[in-house]
């Protein structure tokens, strides 16, 4: 088992037959990543805003597992599940978050703007609603190319009241684009609870307004998400157009590192299923040993430790390129 887990340590490109062990492993890596990120923020090794997704792992990990190489993903300001789920090199990812030269964007993007063209992540964006808009463009290109590629658009309950949601869903439906919209409903848009910013809180119902299928899944059940998104992806690949999948989950941390709290009932998260606990319980029921699961956890911690060590050793980026860029746009003509 250890040997198998070792082989799995670098996340592979996703495949449709990923089992619960692998889904659990990815969620554990993601959980560990966010836990360590909170520490790095506290230590001021990471500055700037930070949006963690502790408690939301199943939605993002289950969804990306439904994709195959050549597919495209657009994501939100809370994109760590996509980083892990798509197998981004995490050393570089931590380096980007720490503003170091080895980050995917050389320190220019920061934690919520890590594009990775090689891994099909184009792109997350810190502007709520952007992921929907970009998905329309990818979908148009994919439909025209006719190779069966699809786009997974990750968005959230906070985005469903943006104009971008309406504009994008209409265009995706109108043009029958191969786009799967995953609405990660974590119950809050910033500090505002869903029922305080949306009259219709069953968000999947909005799909009906665009004439596309909408469904809701337990967003804390990674297998359920994987299954629902896989079906939507298969439909989109087959040229039948977009699907909206609402994954019900819970944000177990602040909206960002600047969250002062005080807006929700402290017991609110008490009854919520932890996606990792649920997956671990299932694995045990299916015969996995406590030791096997502990080994997954240990290896996840090692992987994150190694990534952090890589990032810490990465130099700061040189400022010279900034001056070259500015000179190009600020100075006179380029003939």
């Amino acid at each position: 088992m250890t040997q198998t887990l070792q082989e799995r340590r670098s996340p592979l490109p996703s495949s449709p037959d990923i089992d619960l062990f692998e889904l659990y492993r990815r969620m554990r890596v993601l959980r560990r990543m966010d836990e360590v990120l909170a520490e790095l923020v506290a230590e001021r090794l990471i500055t700037g805003p930070m949006h963690l997704g502790i408690g939301q792992e199943a939605a993002g990990i289950g969804a990306t597992a439904a994709l195959r190489p050549g597919d495209m993903v657009t994501a939100t300001h809370r994109p760590h599940a996509q980083y892990v789920g798509l197998g981004l090199p995490l050393g570089r990812t931590f380096a980007e978050m720490m503003g170091r030269v080895d980050g995917q964007c050389g320190g220019r993007g920061g934690h919520m703007l890590i594009a990775d063209a090689e891994h099909g992540l184009l792109a997350p964006s810190g502007i709520v609603g952007h992921s929907l808009l970009f998905a329309v463009g990818h979908g148009l290109a994919q439909k025209r190319a006719g190779q069966g590629a699809v786009t997974l658009c990750v968005t959230g309950d906070g985005a469903v009241n943006s104009g971008a949601f309406n504009e994008s869903l209409n265009m995706a439906a109108l043009w029958r684009l191969p786009v799967v919209v995953l609405v990660e409903n974590n119950g809050y848009g910033l500090s505002v609870r869903l029922d305080r910013h949306s009259h219709q809180t069953e968000l999947y119902r909005r799909a009906a307004g665009y004439g596309i299928p909408g469904e809701v899944v337990d967003g804390n059940d990674v297998e359920a998400v994987h299954q629902a998104v896989s079906a939507a992806v298969a439909r989109a690949r087959d040229g039948q157009g977009p699907v909206l999948v609402e994954a019900l989950t819970f944000r177990n941390n602040g909206f960002s590192s600047s969250d002062r709290g005080g807006y929700r009932d402290p017991d609110e998260g008490a009854g919520v299923t932890d996606p990792l606990e649920l997956a671990a319980r299932r694995l045990r029921e299916r015969g996995a040993s406590v030791e096997e699961l502990a080994e997954i956890d240990r290896l996840a911690a090692v992987e994150i430790d190694e990534a952090v060590a890589f990032a810490k050793a990465s130099p700061w980026p040189d400022t010279e390129a900034l001056f070259e860029y500015a000179a190009k746009w600020d100075e006179g003509a380029r003939r």
Binding site: A117, V136, A164
Partner: peptide, 23 residues
């Protein structure tokens, strides 16, 4: 040559995705 809905931010946002996908 695509007639779009009256969705200016969507048109330019869509163009961003198209460009990132090679169009």
């Amino acid at each position: 040559v695509l007639d779009t809905p009256i969705s200016e931010n969507g048109i330019v946002g869509g163009a961003i995705g198209m460009a990132m996908s090679g169009l």
